[in-house]
């Protein structure tokens, strides 16, 4: 089974959604670029263990004196 079919079958089983058209096959294949980006980040990135709310970071990063 080609990898593309494996992914499409997994989408079908997990989400009940079938390939809607041929362009979607190109869209799915385009995920490879993002996978490559994430592969390049492995080791340097990961789950953040410490409490790290995004809204708190927004407040903390305001302009000095604001």
């Amino acid at each position: 089974m080609e990898p593309d079919r494996v992914t499409m079958e997994a989408i079908g089983r997990w989400s009940g959604i079938a390939l809607p058209n041929e362009a979607a096959r190109i869209g799915l294949a385009d995920n490879a670029a993002l996978i490559a980006e994430l592969e390049a980040l492995r080791g340097g990135m990961g789950f953040e263990e410490e409490p790290s709310g995004f809204e708190a970071a927004l407040r903390d990063c305001k302009e000095p004196g604001q």
Binding site: I11, G27, F54
Partner: peptide, 21 residues
């Protein structure tokens, strides 16, 4: 939209957890 169903859940959680840092 279809391609979005292929992303693993753990990476989505990782992406949100890394947003503040």
């Amino acid at each position: 939209i279809y391609g979005g169903y292929a992303f693993p859940g753990h990476l989505y959680v990782e992406a949100l957890s890394r947003r503040g840092p």
